[in-house]
Simulated scan of single mutants.
Amino acid sequence: MSNRDVTALIINVLAAATEPADKTLALLFKHLIDHPEQLAQVRHDPNLLAAAIAETLRFTPPVQLIPRQAEENAVFAGTTVPAGATVFCMIGAANRDPDAFTAPDTFDIHRRDLGTARSFTAAAQHLAFGTGLHQCVGAAFARAEIETVAAMLLPLLDEVCYSPGFRYQETGLYTRGPVSLSLDFTPSTKAAPATTDGRP
């Protein structure tokens, strides 16, 4: 690899592990606020957090499309894609495919057709991180980021809701997410967990 190729790869890995993660975190909170019964369930059972993140990635993937170049002529749905042509794989649409997901336009952390355990691997049912050999190399790091931050914030934000007058807007084409997410909440009065030696 040339120095230019190495530099481009490093930039791509850093971008893949940061920008989609912050968008996914914001979208996670949006969807849980929009579905208060599921928010309550995640608060009650932190083990559901991974499922909530996986469903957020399926429902509103932060990366909406992936460009690919055809190595040879290929036919899709009766249309020939010539060798060398650039094809844009629309992840957002694929993740709402009714042939792949039941009620695809419904946000449901309990859906049985997602497979939470494999949602951050190359065998994921959704395409938020790509698939197979072309899975995003930042997927595991992004999962660690999102789970760590969400697990820290959720217990601290009681009665979390949108700020008065807030209007939700999204922006972006290649990557897509909220312009902002203005929230109001009551700081949790729960005591911080004690350490193993009894100190707070």
Rank of each mutant, 00 (worst) to 15 (best):
E145L: 07
F141E: 06
R118K: 11
C136Y: 06
L133N: 09
R118M: 06
G115Y: 00
G138A: 15
G132C: 13
L114W: 02
G130W: 02
A128K: 00
S119E: 10
A123Y: 03
A122E: 12
T131K: 12
T131E: 09
L114D: 03
R143Q: 15
S119T: 10
A123R: 11
A144K: 08
D113Q: 06
V137N: 06
A124Y: 00
A142G: 13
G130E: 05
R118T: 15
H126M: 08
A122P: 08
H110F: 06
G115V: 00
H126N: 08
A123H: 12
L133E: 13
G132T: 13
Q135K: 09
A128I: 06
A139Y: 04
A142S: 14
R143I: 11
R143W: 14
C136W: 05
G115L: 00
L127F: 14
V137W: 05
G130C: 05
A139E: 06
S119M: 10
R143D: 11
H134E: 08
A117I: 03
A140R: 12
R118G: 09
A123M: 08
R143S: 07
E145I: 03
A139G: 07
T116S: 02
L114V: 02
L127V: 13
R118N: 12
G130H: 05
R111L: 02
E145A: 04
A140T: 12
A117F: 01
T131H: 15
R111I: 01
Q135M: 15
E145D: 13
R118S: 15
H126P: 09
A142L: 06
L127R: 14
A128S: 15
A128T: 04
F129V: 13
L127D: 04
R111W: 01
A128G: 15
A139K: 03
Q125V: 13
C136A: 09
T131V: 04
F120I: 03
